[in-house]
């Protein structure tokens, strides 16, 4: 479903992603693991069009999407839930969710009616968001903001979601809650690319994983095998 070929990308200096190739088949959950600064977020941002690649190709659904803007990529169903959540702080929880469905909603017409089915679906998944739907997103707790960020991505009815560091800055109990949501999403058939520093949990929820170090894939394999390999765990994942 998604094929990344020899992708290179970076910021002002050297490449932060130095020729990464990965493949994701429909319905799978693939993990990207690696330490701080390995290049996972850079890869995620480049896939989704926030960064322009310096080389390589991204193919989604058989069509090349390399270099398209993030909004075009999102409209094709490849949606990123960015690192650090990036909810729209001054807007309400419900407005944040509605924005996730933006391309489908009438710009000047009655949008709430058009989105109400999808809103109910997200609220059923995250009841806490329903309770807080008219609260400013910036005033939510970290865990609630992460739920909102995931809910916002799901409002797009994506065919593929990239989750970047969903556990970042969350208490262990909240991390568990977030990952339960990710698991049930995967169980419902969603294709997921999960970028995660917290390798143990990422290898539990994923089918297959790529280990990234200094901008390159250093190891890949079935998640189960990687998790059971003590050498891998200590060498790459601390």
């Amino acid at each position: 479903m998604l094929k990344v070929e020899n992708l290179r990308a970076g910021y002002s200096g050297d490449d932060a992603v130095r020729g990464i190739s990965i493949e994701v088949t429909e319905g799978s959950c693939i993990a990207l693991v690696g330490a701080n600064g390995a290049g996972k977020s850079t890869l995620a941002k480049t896939l989704c069009g926030l960064l322009t690649p310096r080389g390589g190709r991204v193919i989604f659904d058989g069509k090349e999407i390399t270099g398209l803007s993030a909004s075009e990529v999102a409209r094709r169903g490849l949606c990123l839930c960015p690192e650090g959540r990036r909810v729209f702080g001054p807007l309400t929880v419900e407005e944040n969710l509605l924005l996730g469905a933006y391309p489908r909603l009438p710009s000047f017409g009655p949008f709430r009616r058009a989105a109400s089915g999808d809103l109910q679906r997200i609220y059923a998944m995250f009841p806490r968001l329903r309770e807080r739907r008219s609260q400013q997103a910036g005033s939510l707790s970290g865990g609630e903001q992460q739920m909102l960020a995931i809910g916002r991505v799901l409002m797009a009815n994506p065919r593929f979601v990239v989750l970047d560091e969903p556990s970042m800055g969350l208490a262990p109990l909240v991390v568990k809650e977030v990952f339960e949501a990710i698991c049930s999403l995967h169980a419902s058939g969603m294709t997921i690319l999960l970028s995660e520093q917290f390798a143990k949990i990422a290898l539990v929820v994923s089918n297959y994983a790529y280990i990234i170090e200094r901008g390159s894939v250093v190891l890949e394999g079935a998640s189960k095998g990687l998790a059971e390999n003590p050498a891998v765990m200590s060498a790459y994942l601390g």
Binding site: L80, R86, P90, L91, L98, P103
Partner: peptide
Amino acid sequence: IAVQAVSADPDAAELCG
């Protein structure tokens, strides 16, 4: 609302399409 989203965080707004 989309204009407000762009003014709060243009990248996150792009990610919403």
